[in-house]
Amino acid sequence: MYNLELERVISEIKRRKPKQVLLQLPDGLKQKAGMIADTIEEKTDAQVFILFGSCYGACDLPLGLDVLKIDLMIQWGHNRFYKEEW
């Protein structure tokens, strides 16, 4: 129903060569997480992790990823946003 663009994702991972990738999906797409992880691990050398918690938008990125040595985070269902200063 929604285009997960897995070919583009695989191609991007092959280009960037991350060792560890974190997937972040909104609730409506979380059921696809297993399939996406399987596909990425099958077609690339990256190890894949899935963020358990929320994904309310591009503003909702987790911290601490450096500690876990995550090289690339992929978020579905949103695009780049511009933070407004108050």
Binding site: N3, E5, L72, M73
Partner: peptide, 14 residues
């Protein structure tokens, strides 16, 4: 530094 990549997940129907 963690890189970031977004996928819109566009609706596939017309």
């Amino acid at each position: 530094m963690v890189e970031l990549f977004f996928v819109d997940a566009k609706f596939e129907g017309k």
